[in-house]
């Protein structure tokens, strides 16, 4: 390998009379310089991320204590906590997952396995890729006009969950389609060959083989929903919530209550935004601490998704 590279050098130097050794060295040098620049540009994002983490940790770490997780927001910065925010985030994400995941996966399965090549399919496909590019705040406007005032679901956990479910739908659909497409056709043919119906092939063979990729898409979608702020502000999510939603489990029959769906709420990113936008720096430490919690959650979800994808890609080879 090294030998042939060396010989190539000799050839290019002897066969190119117009270029002297200095010029060639100059071209090589330029290439080395570019590689250094390339590496630096690639790392800019990473460097920014580490600065960001460092900055958040420096401001927010002192505020992170047990009390911070078990206290409601307060007018005094030192007493304020994120109890209502993280409970709200958990409940909203729950609603988002319950609505968004089945809908997205089903749509993905339809488009990849069932859809015939016709104008209807084309419209749906173009439409999904367009939806993925719609700014998130526009989903907030949709929710404000349609859910809050149109259907009268109010500024509730249900509205927020629905909004975010619509927002992550394209992400889940695209991920589902890509992982289903990666399932080799021979698996389907083998199943058809022994008499399985289309539904059975899809349910028992295609979907299990595609599940890692689908799961990755779901995790990335939910992590996106967790960090989303703008659409929830638009539906008018309150920022000062010093109460918890109605408990989902009650002591009387039927023991399950869905009243929490219609309660007001706040979520972690909104709480963080609220604290950032207060004048004075008292609340900035709280904002940093809340941001740190949020960042830890979304980054670990994303890391999980990435690890999942790369490990399974290596293991599954057809």
């Amino acid at each position: 390998m090294a030998g042939s590279a060396l010989r190539a050098d000799v050839i290019s130097e002897t066969r190119a009379p117009g270029l002297d050794a200095g010029q060639i060295r100059g071209r090589r040098l330029r290439e080395k310089l570019f590689i250094a620049c390339g590496l630096a540009s690639t790392l800019v994002g990473l460097i920014a991320l580490s600065f960001l983490l460092f900055d958040l940790a420096a401001d927010g770490l002192p505020r992170l204590s047990w009390d911070f997780f078990t206290s409601f927001p307060s007018r005094r910065a030192s007493a304020a906590g994120i109890l209502s925010a993280w409970v709200g985030s958990v409940l909203v994400i729950l609603v988002t997952a319950i609505i968004g995941v089945p809908l997205g996966v089903a749509a993905g399965i339809y488009l990849e396995e069932y859809a015939r090549r016709n104008w209807m399919t084309n419209i749906i496909e173009i439409n999904v890729s367009n939806l993925a590019a719609v700014p998130s705040i526009v989903y907030g406007l949709l929710a404000l006009g349609l859910f809050v005032y149109g259907l009268g679901t109010g500024r509730s956990i249900l509205t927020a969950g629905l909004t975010l479910a619509l927002l992550i739908l394209p992400i889940i659909i695209v991920a589902t389609r890509e992982s289903i497409r990666a399932v080799p056709y021979s698996i389907r043919e083998a199943a058809y060959g022994i008499g399985a119906t289309k539904g059975q092939v899809t349910r028992d063979h295609v979907l299990p083989a595609a599940i890692p990729g689908v799961l990755t898409g779901i995790i990335i979608g939910l992590s996106r929903a967790l960090g989303e702020t703008a659409p929830l502000i638009t539906i008018g999510a309150l920022t000062f919530i010093a109460f918890l939603p109605d408990p989902p489990i009650t002591s009387e029959f039927p023991f399950i209550s869905f009243r929490w769906l219609f309660d007001g709420f706040t979520v972690l990113p909104i709480q963080a935004f609220n604290w950032i936008s207060r004048p004075g720096s008292d609340f900035h430490a709280n904002a940093a601490a809340a941001g740190l919690v949020l960042l830890a959650l979304t980054l670990s979800l994303n890391a999980l998704a990435i690890v999942l994808r790369y490990r399974l890609r290596r293991r599954l080879q057809w």
Binding site: L52, L56, A287, A288, L294, T298
Partner: peptide, 10 residues
């Protein structure tokens, strides 16, 4: 995966 509100803080 970094939430935009965190970028805003930054």
């Amino acid at each position: 995966g970094v939430p935009t509100v965190v970028y805003g803080f930054f």
